[in-house]
């Protein structure tokens, strides 16, 4: 698979591989992400109107007519596109691409034009329609490494930026580059079936590099030319139901 900007070699270029054969749609990744990244809980009503705030979500697709139905799951999060459509349309540089292939969101800079959300074919950008709210039980468990976002701005999956930072810091302390497996985003860590793999695709020894170059790898909406950094491994014909 051709990797966008492969000539611009940086030490790190983060990527994620999701094995659809392993995903059983349990939703643990969603909870893991929500806890790690201080994603607010929006409540039933807003979820019903389509304002659910899940940086990663499990999309369910049902094939066939009852009783012969198959359900397929597709974990969906920000694809960290190399040619990200969301970035160029932001009038205030609130989202841009960093050297490590991450599509980053600058919360303080965002004014909430929501243009990025309109230009994202994956619909994985989330807007804070209200002041952030958290359940009583989780209010004292907010992650101090992640800022709580104000109302009126966009947010989205950051590939657990704070964990990448920490991983790099540790590696630097030990005077070595980041090893494969040093860094795990919350979703990958939580996934009971190990469907999510995260790593440095520029490290040719890494697991993601190997998986990406396997036969099952594909990317979503490849025809759009967005060059996502999230790769999916095709699921087989069998399914849970």
């Amino acid at each position: 698979m051709k990797i966008f900007n492969a000539d611009k070699q940086n030490d790190y270029k983060w990527a994620m591989v999701i094995d659809l054969d392993r995903c059983d749609g349990c939703g643990a990744c969603v909870i893991g992400c929500q806890t790690e990244n201080n994603v607010p809980t929006v409540g039933q009503d807003d979820v019903a109107t389509g304002r659910s705030m899940h940086w990663i979500r499990i999309e369910r697709y049902i094939e066939g007519e009852y009783p012969n139905v198959k359900v397929r799951f597709l974990p969906m999060m920000c694809q960290h596109c190399e040619a990200a459509p969301c970035e160029s349309v932001c009038p205030v540089y609130a989202t841009y691409h960093n050297d490590e292939g991450l599509n980053v969101q600058v919360y303080n800079r965002c004014i909430g034009t929501r243009f990025c959300g309109n230009n994202c074919p994956y619909s994985v950008r989330f807007f804070n329609w209200w002041d952030p709210s958290f359940d009583e039980a989780t209010r004292n468990q907010l992650n101090p490494d992640v800022s709580v976002r104000e109302r009126g701005i966009m947010e989205k999956c950051s590939f657990c930026m704070q964990r990448i930072r920490r991983g790099k810091d540790h590696a630097k302390d030990e005077g070595r580059p980041v090893k494969d497996g040093d860094i795990q985003p919350a979703c990958a860590q939580t996934c009971p079936t190990g469907a999510i793999t995260f790593g440095n695709i520029n490290d040719h020894e890494s697991k993601v590099h190997e998986m990406v170059h396997g036969k099952r790898a594909y990317r979503l909406f490849e025809e759009k030319g967005t060059h996502p950094s999230v790769y999916y491994l095709k699921g087989g014909a069998e399914n849970v139901f």
């Binding site: 596109c81 190399e82 459509p85 969301c86 970035e87 160029s88 932001c90 841009y96 691409h97």
Partner: peptide, 9 residues
């Protein structure tokens, strides 16, 4: 001056 990579432009 603001040489930020936005969408590969």
């Amino acid at each position: 001056i603001m040489n930020l990579n936005v969408g590969g432009k």
